[in-house]
């Protein structure tokens, strides 16, 4: 390979895109279910929102692990 740095940039770009697809799908599905739950049971909106933020934080954390690896690939 002539330029391994270029391959690292390519890997970081493709990888961050894939990670975002996963994270976006996860949080989107979560938000859809939470909205549905709130629409069916408006009294429980506070509890549903709290549980949604906790789950969203966990999904976001997993996505960010992947993104940090991408940043490490680029600045290495």
């Amino acid at each position: 390979m002539d330029n391994p740095t270029g391959l690292a940039y390519l890997a970081a770009g493709i990888g961050s895109g894939l990670a975002i697809i996963g994270g976006g799908l996860g949080i989107g599905k979560l938000a859809a279910s939470a909205m549905e739950g709130i629409a069916r049971q408006p009294n429980a909106s506070g509890e549903i929102r709290g549980a949604m933020i906790v789950a969203a934080g966990l999904i976001e954390g997993a996505t960010l692990f992947a993104l940090v690896i991408m940043i490490l690939l680029v600045i290495k």
Binding site: G57, L58, E60, G61, L64, F65, L67, V68
Partner: peptide, 13 residues
């Protein structure tokens, strides 16, 4: 570890 990465990545991004 997850707490560390989450805060760091959010502030950086």
């Amino acid at each position: 570890f997850a707490l560390m990465i989450r805060l760091f990545a959010n502030m950086l991004a």
